[in-house]
């Protein structure tokens, strides 16, 4: 069954929801890839997203893994173009227009209004993910410890996520 058109539709749509960052699209990413298209399970999505936090560059590169699972190398490329193409075009056009909008009073209103909404979407995505990732006292402890360390010290977050892997390997392996 050819899933490529569905991949294009889903990721082009998700692209436009990433206001303030990729996490804003996470709740819809879950609904579409897990519940509607059954491309992967919710735990798999959480795993891929979390591993993606350790990769360099834009932090939504885990979409490449989904594309590859569904339709091989072509799927990976299609997903990249569908996910980054629409917002890239928008940024290109608005970027050129932006200077002309300098004195348009609503420009500031839009910026100020969208700032709290984008943080809300980031949190909403985080809570959606937490529902699957925080399954007990141990995982909650790891999450809170990571949060507190990051707020307190300047440390590369990728190192902490990697540390989570080590702690997880020792804590959750069935005896």
């Amino acid at each position: 069954m050819n899933q490529v058109p569905a991949l294009i539709r889903v990721f082009a749509y998700l692209s436009l929801l990433t206001v303030g960052g990729g996490m804003a699209a996470f709740p819809e990413l879950k609904v579409l890839t897990v519940e509607v298209h059954h491309w992967l399970t919710f735990p798999q999505l959480i795993h891929l997203y979390s591993v993606g936090q350790m990769a360099p560059g834009p932090n939504m590169m885990m979409i490449v893994s989904i594309g590859e699972w569904v339709a091989g190398p072509l799927g990976a490329i299609v997903v990249l173009i569908a996910f980054f193409g629409p917002t890239a075009l928008l940024a290109f056009l608005i970027g050129r227009l932006w200077k002309k909008l300098e004195h348009w009073p609503w420009r500031t209103s839009i910026q100020k209004g969208l700032a709290p909404v984008s943080i809300g979407l980031l949190l909403a995505g985080c809570f959606t993910m937490a529902k699957g990732a925080i399954t007990g006292l141990e995982t909650a402890t790891i999450a809170v410890a990571t949060l507190l360390i990051l707020l307190q010290y300047k440390i590369n977050p990728a190192l902490l996520v990697a540390a989570g892997a080590v702690i997880g390997a020792f804590t959750f392996v069935p005896k």
């Binding site: 997203y49 990732a133 989570g164 997880g168 390997a169 804590t171």
Partner: peptide
Amino acid sequence: KGVAAAAV
């Protein structure tokens, strides 16, 4: 499982 918790 540890990675996902840390990512949250």
